[in-house]
Design a protein around this nucleic acid. Structure first.
Lengths: 155, 155
DNA sequence: CTTGTGTGGTTGCATCATAAAACCATATGC
DNA sequence: GCATATGGTTTTATGATGCAACCACACAAG
């Protein structure tokens, strides 16, 4: 097989997520969708990407349950692409990417926008990793454990 | 230009981060590096990827300041690839990807590992977005603001 | 010093994905 | 009915990917 290697069967959850949204465009399409974009042409003009690729990506995102097609909305008999809960669940990923750029980009002055708390207009805090009891965790405070075997009902 | 479109000049921080780590392998290489992998052959055998592509990706990650080459470490006169602070800063991104899989994957039973608090052995909490004052924020509670103009010193 | 072996890559193709533009189908406006 | 906008698909060229083979260097044994 010379195809791009698929991570579908991989047991690593990071690889599995990249299978769905690890290409050049998917996360940007989701970003636009989170801003309320729903129509093919709107995605295409805002992202400036080729229409065939947009078409492929939208289909892939629908197949992965990240977007769903809705029959219409404003009367016109066309199709719309709306985020599913799974799609909206990518929000922390986008925030993490944004914060990484804000923290480490070599030219942060080129970043045009900041994510703020709507109520106060102040930047949101950096994402933090915490234990169940609320302790702040650094990467070194964490480790990987094998997943417990699936619990079979009765025996 | 028929090349893969570059997001380098884009003003969106998400696009900018994808420029550095938005391809199929970079985040997985970083994942291994966070586990302590440093040598070419070790990356290659653990990830099962072609060596030329690994070579290209490592160079790209070094160029982006995510990895750095260290002259040696165990005496053998070869090179090592170690994460920079910028590279270690991707940790929240990987956690976000992992948690998204854990929450939304269609076959979660295939996920082999869980990320736990090393001290207690309990799963880490989901990443939360909070305001400066600690209020928990949903996506709808946030908005984007234009970045304030760069502050020039004196005038 | 020569041979062998392991590590760390680079080079050559064959194949796949991507991109731009042209084309097409359906709606909508006039 | 005709022009035009929307929402795509098809065509074709080129870049990226994947596999295998090859090469360079270090080190060790003979």
């Amino acid at each position: 097989m010379v195809k791009r290697t698929s991570f579908e069967g991989d047991s690593c959850p990071i690889a599995r997520s990249l299978e769905a949204l690890g290409d050049w465009w998917s996360l940007l399409i989701i970003r636009e969708a989170l801003f309320g974009v729903r129509r093919f042409g709107e995605f295409q003009s805002k992202l400036g990407m080729a229409k065939n690729i947009l078409s492929t990506r939208l289909r892939s995102l629908v197949d992965h349950g990240i977007l769903a097609t809705a029959p219409a909305s404003d009367g016109s008999a066309y199709q719309e692409y709306v985020l599913t809960p799974k799609g909206r669940g990518t929000f922390p990923i986008l925030v993490a990417l944004r914060q990484w750029s804000e923290a480490f980009d070599d030219h942060p002055e080129e970043i045009a926008t900041i994510l703020v708390d709507r109520e106060k207009g102040r930047p949101v805090k950096k994402l933090e990793m915490r234990a169940e009891d609320g302790r702040l965790l650094s990467p070194a405070d964490t480790t990987l454990k094998p997943r417990p075997a699936p619990r079979r009902r009765s025996a």
